[in-house]
């Protein structure tokens, strides 16, 4: 039995996940919490948010994120990928910066028009 705090929404439900009973989740208030609890034990993932360098914009950094959650263990490797990126203004919200980052199936996308 593992105890977790659900991070799906600000409510922060205290979940219990029973690995020996088919990853049964209790303590959740919604179906997304159940899914989070199960995934968190079997294959924990996070959306990565960071910035990359941009030239020609009002600020020097452009905010980016992964379009879907990637493996938690890949977060620092993904950060290394970002270090090699330089964008040039203009960019649009949703523009793909790196497609299929670290073969995760998720893209790295711009989150601000700059």
């Amino acid at each position: 039995m593992k105890e977790l705090i659900c991070i799906v929404c600000p409510r922060g439900c205290h979940l219990k996940v029973d690995e020996e009973n088919g990853y049964a989740v209790t303590g959740n208030s919604c179906p997304r919490g159940e899914q989070y609890g199960r995934n968190e034990i079997k294959d924990p993932r996070r959306v990565l948010t960071s910035t990359v360098k941009i030239n020609g914009a009002a600020y020097r950094r452009c905010p980016v994120r992964t379009s879907a959650a990637i493996k938690k263990g890949d977060l620092f490797n993904a950060m290394k990928e970002l270090n090699g990126v330089t964008l040039t203004s203009p960019v649009k919200r949703g523009d793909v910066v790196i497609s299929n980052i670290l073969s995760s199936g998720a893209d790295l996308i711009v989150t601000k028009d700059m």
Binding site: P63, R93, T111, K112
Partner: peptide, 22 residues
């Protein structure tokens, strides 16, 4: 606030701060 988690109630999506403002 470039992290995500904005807009869950309003847009039923997890947006970053700039996306929510955008």
């Amino acid at each position: 606030c470039i992290h995500n988690g904005f807009g869950l109630h309003r847009f039923k999506e997890e947006l970053s701060g700039p996306e929510y403002a955008g």
